[in-house]
Each structure stands twice: as structure tokens, then as C-alpha cells.
């Protein structure tokens, strides 16, 4: 039985994260290379959209990640408010910029896909609008957290914001069902077989895994940096080999 609470203290989490980061970078690079190869060289040309559909290989994984990261942030926020652990707030703020990046990429690639297919960069459609709100929620979290000087108070305020904002995630997901949207319905669902060629689906899923690995690597890197910033005066930080190298 692993004692999970042991790793909730920054001093034991820091070296563990340090060992995991290169593993996830390797995974991200390998999966990314396979995913791109499938996406550009194996997946066939789409009957309706020609080669333009290949944006799907980053658009869908980026959109999934933008929603998933927000859920993880809400999970850490709940943990933080319940158990009052230092790690929770660090993890939440470590994830926020990467979540914002994926929300931005989702909107950006969506615009570049929408222009040739729908004839518009942007429409005020339920799916697009709720994803834009998600992007603003990430920015709002970051702004709120940065505006409060005391990091523990900033964590609590940010935790509340991310818990309230998480209602937006199911709204994004179901928006294509609840409203008449220009955005197409889900290409992949748990209840029916996917409505796309299997090589396209595999390319997309592998790219999604690559984005996962990337997110974990980057979030761990940022979490470690946040630990160094916040615990700069504590003994465990002063005795880190990383610190001794620089001195």
C-alpha cells in the first residue's frame, strides 16, 4: 500500500516529480511522433473535407485536454479545501497556464478549421462560446491567484473559483446535444462506435495521449518551480542538490 499522503508534502513530492519529468517527456515525444505520422501519412484523405480535416489531430486532443485539466484543477481544489494541504494549491496553479494554453489552441485550431469549412473564423455557437468561457475561467483563475499576495489565501480563493467554474465543463461537452450548433456532434462517444475511419481515430487518440504526457511533464516542472518559490526559506529547499549546484 502506497502512502499517498507522504507525497502530499512538497519535500517528498519534489524529488519524485523530478524523476517522473524525463519519463513523461520521452512518452510525449514518442507518442507525438507516432500520432503525427499516422495523422499525416497513414490516415486517408477525408471524403468531404479533403486534407483540411487533419486539423482534427490537434483540435480534438487540445479541446479534451482543456476540459480535463480544468476537472483536475477542480479535484485538487476540493482536496485543498478539504484537507488543507499545501500541495493542492501548488498543483492547481501549476496546471492553470497549461489548461489556458490548450483552451487557446482549441479555439485557434477551431478558427482555422471553421474558416475553410463553415466560411467563418468564429460564430457565437454554444460549443464555441462555452469553450471561450473556459479559456476566460483559466485566465480568471490566474489573475485572481496573482492578485492575492498571501499564497495560501490565493489558493483558497482560486479553489473556489475553479470549483464553481467546473459546471462549465459538462456544458461544453453536451452543448452540441442541448443546442442546435454549427459545431458537429461528438466524433467519439462511449455509447456508440466512432463515426470515423479507424486510422483517423487512432491518430487522434495517440495525439491525445501525447498531449496527456506533455501536460503531466509541464505541470510537474511548474509545480516544482512553484515549490522552490514558495518554500525558498525552508530547510529542505536549502539542502536540495539543485540549489547546491548553483551556489
Amino acid at each position: 500500500m502506497i502512502n499517498w499522503f507522504k507525497y502530499s508534502s512538497p519535500s517528498s513530492f519534489y524529488p519524485l516529480a523530478g524523476r517522473l519529468i524525463p519519463v513523461f517527456w520521452m512518452l510525449a515525444a514518442i507518442l507525438g511522433a507516432i500520432g503525427l505520422y499516422i495523422g499525416f501519412f497513414i490516415a486517408p484523405t477525408d471524403a468531404q473535407q479533403g486534407e483540411g480535416y487533419r486539423i482534427i489531430f490537434i483540435h480534438v486532443p487540445a479541446s479534451w485536454m482543456s476540459m480535463f485539466i480544468y476537472c483536475v484543477m477542480a479535484f485538487w481544489s476540493l482536496m485543498g479545501l478539504t484537507f488543507n494541504t499545501r500541495l493542492s494549491g501548488m498543483m492547481t496553479s501549476a496546471l492553470a497556464p497549461t489548461g489556458a494554453l490548450f483552451a487557446f489552441l482549441s479555439l485557434w485550431t477551431g478558427a482555422l478549421w471553421g474558416k475553410p469549412m463553415w466560411g467563418a473564423w468564429w460564430v457565437w455557437d454554444a460549443r464555441l462560446t462555452s469553450e471561450l468561457i473556459l479559456f476566460f475561467l483559466y485566465l480568471g483563475y490566474m489573475a485572481l491567484h496573482a492578485a492575492i499576495d498571501d499564497p495560501r489565501r490565493a489558493d483558497r480563493a482560486g479553489a473556489l473559483l475553479s470549483l464553481v467554474g467546473v459546471v462549465n465543463v459538462p456544458i461544453i461537452y453536451f452543448s452540441v446535444k442541448w443546442w442546435n450548433t454549427l459545431h458537429q456532434g461528438a466524433s467519439v462517444s462511449l455509447t456508440r462506435s466512432p463515426s470515423m475511419a479507424s486510422t483517423m481515430l487512432w491518430g487522434m487518440l495517440i495525439m491525445a495521449l501525447a498531449f496527456w504526457a506533455y501536460t503531466i511533464a509541464v505541470a510537474l516542472m511548474r509545480a516544482r518551480t512553484i515549490m522552490l518559490e514558495r518554500e525558498a526559506t525552508s530547510e529542505w529547499v536549502k539542502h536540495l542538490p539543485d540549489v547546491k549546484e548553483i551556489a
Binding site: T45, E51, G52, R54, I55, L112, W113, K115, P116
Partner: peptide, 9 residues
């Protein structure tokens, strides 16, 4: 060229 979609892709 991506079948004319190069800019977007």
C-alpha cells in the same frame, strides 16, 4: 500544400 488547406493546417 495540403490539398489547398495548407494555410489552415
Amino acid at each position: 500544400a495540403m490539398g489547398g488547406y495548407g494555410l489552415y493546417v
